[in-house]
Amino acid sequence: MNIVGISACPAGLAHTPMAAKALEQAGKELGYHVKMEQQGSMGPVNAITQEEADQADFVLIASDQKITNMERFKGKKVLNVNINVCIKAPKAVLKKCVSVVKGD
């Protein structure tokens, strides 16, 4: 599984990098390739390229904020998850998203 995503939170200080790191770590443990772009107070960190977007199986948006540059993901399946759930239970989030995408 090749997953790309974006995290963003109100101040863009703490929850944005926490969610990104939690999901990437969980991905490693589950054997998925996960790359999270952080749209926080530093601007885009770990930005997802068009090529990476094209190769992804799906897109995970860990945010209830306005996300910029979504046109990269045109035609891709996009799943929205609460950012706090991503920090609290990143493995469960990934498993659930994968099963939704696979249509299990």
């Binding site: 703490a14 944005t16 939690a22 770590q25 926080g40």
Partner: peptide, 23 residues
């Protein structure tokens, strides 16, 4: 704590590092 504008990348990076350290 960060100012509304012009916090500086270095400071923001430190706060980001602290947040992820808590994982």
């Amino acid at each position: 704590m960060v100012p509304k504008e012009g916090a500086g990348t270095r400071h923001l990076k430190m706060l980001s590092n602290l947040a992820t350290a808590l994982l």
